[in-house]
Design a binder for these strands. Sequence first.
DNA 1: CTGTTAGCGCCTTCAA
DNA 2: TTGAAGGCGCTAACAG
Lengths: 337, 337
Amino acid sequence: MTRNTRTPGIADPTRQPTISDVAALAGVSRAAASRALSASPRPVSAEKRERVLAAAAELGFRPNILAQSLTRKSVNLVAVLVNHLHDLSDLDLFDSLIARIQGSGKQVMFVRVGDVASVQDFLRDGLAYHVDAAIVFSDFADAASVREMFRSERVIMLNGRHDAESPAVIADEAVGIHQAISHAARQGVKTAALVTGRSSSLVEQARIGYYRAALGIEGIQLIRTFQGDYSYESGRAAAAALCGERCADAIFCTSDAMAMGLLDVQRKDFPEGRPTRFRLYGYDDLSLLSFEAYPISSIGYDHRAFVDAIIAHLTASDSRVGGVSHIATRFTERLTG
Amino acid sequence: MTRNTRTPGIADPTRQPTISDVAALAGVSRAAASRALSASPRPVSAEKRERVLAAAAELGFRPNILAQSLTRKSVNLVAVLVNHLHDLSDLDLFDSLIARIQGSGKQVMFVRVGDVASVQDFLRDGLAYHVDAAIVFSDFADAASVREMFRSERVIMLNGRHDAESPAVIADEAVGIHQAISHAARQGVKTAALVTGRSSSLVEQARIGYYRAALGIEGIQLIRTFQGDYSYESGRAAAAALCGERCADAIFCTSDAMAMGLLDVQRKDFPEGRPTRFRLYGYDDLSLLSFEAYPISSIGYDHRAFVDAIIAHLTASDSRVGGVSHIATRFTERLTG
DNA sequence: CTGTTAGCGCCTTCAA
DNA sequence: TTGAAGGCGCTAACAG
């Protein structure tokens, strides 16, 4: 029995039909069957193509994409790295990202990288696919590690940890933050408190810097700071620490979740639906803020533009150019501002 | 040049090193290199293993999992099918599911199947991987289609559309629903309104049936019904329709999101933090309900148990047994109940 | 323990 | 246009 030549009648009937089976049934060579089944136009006589297609249909043949990719050098798989799912500041963003990736004919491999250790585990255990591209939300991975992890040059960094070789998409946070703070200044805010996330993240460090700079420019005094971790619970903790005696005129939170926690602690004090002793500003512009319970003024960016930029890098012809796309942010006023 | 034998010095240096390169550098056969690199213990002399490992490290060798899977007949890939991401009634569930799957050494392929048409597209275009298993949340896919789509016998159905050949995990909704309704009865509720989702879903049809049955048993009269689509917006619409003149003593929503929308519309009428003219019951027990703004009594299940059941099916030795695992649901009382 | 050999399923030269 | 042959990267079976 020669290579890849089988007698379908004798072989295991539960086995998935391969292109060899199709070729045999159609009475053509494997190469001819491959050409007939190919999406791109290849030289096959119309009559043979017909026979091959009929045979494939009869057998219920479906190509093994993994085997294809072995020769094609492209698996049509994109890895998406996140810390945890909770980090997805907005599911809408994610949903449209996945839809767009699938729309481009690729599938999405979802990789949850909870901490630095698991990045190392991945590298050590070699349990990473050779994917076409990787999109990195997770804080815990730098561009070089991800390139090595997935053996891919096309690594799109969204966490600020890009380098010269990998493209990145980053939100231009300074603009929106300045808009929010100058809005506060116009409302007569003189003193402010800042609730931050883990300062280990580069993104967060930069964000804090923008707040401080804008407050300085607008002549608002930063009288207190509280370090949280982006979570709702840490926002509640911040309320206890900041909303006592000398409460600032405005409290800026570097995540909406924290602002929500803070708001909930204060909720009983304001039947009007918003705090009166201070103004409250969040960050992320979660779609949840359109619910009446959390009318928090916030800073966000256009999700469509963000996804567009990612897709552009994904489909760019030159895979290894390390360009950085900037996405504008904007301030949205709601009841609390 | 014979099969798979290369001279590394001459070959394209940007090419990823293969096991042949490692073997050549270590001065052993490819088979020996494969054995040395294998996770499971295989016969290799300690000295050779040493040399191979050193060579692999020097070259930065990483096995191509896709090529491995071609011979191993297992890709270590699990497909997860969802409608949209919004459908994930709780991200926590999803997060731990993915963590557990990755913990078992498999990766997760995320497939968004927005409608019936895309299921057909998948089948027609053949752009589906031969995965080890598929986990189906999406309403739009039945067991047989998914088995064909992914060429896998191991299809775990969570949408109620399982058949004799595929295992399933389903929440035992009747229990929790009855708990909620008998709780309402004990509070003196005599009349009820029901806000439902799309009744095209089998799960939803069954759910509505449980509500009706339990209301009957407890002697509560169902005086009004409103059809929504599980969304927050449709909950708001329900409020307009149901909370007017002849408002029921209790309103039961088949999703928490709808209950939240309904609550928000009524919010201004109750400074006490909850509606007073009627009791409100949701479904899903979202973690969001632990926030003070939405203290909605709700019905849910133990996420851990649910994930455990899925993983059990995933790792079961007999792939094609179609057992159905039932997960208990329970009622949780909050302010609105 | 070792290396040789024969594939996994597919695609792509390359002569004919 | 066609089919034979070789190879993608890896592992398993088989002699030694």
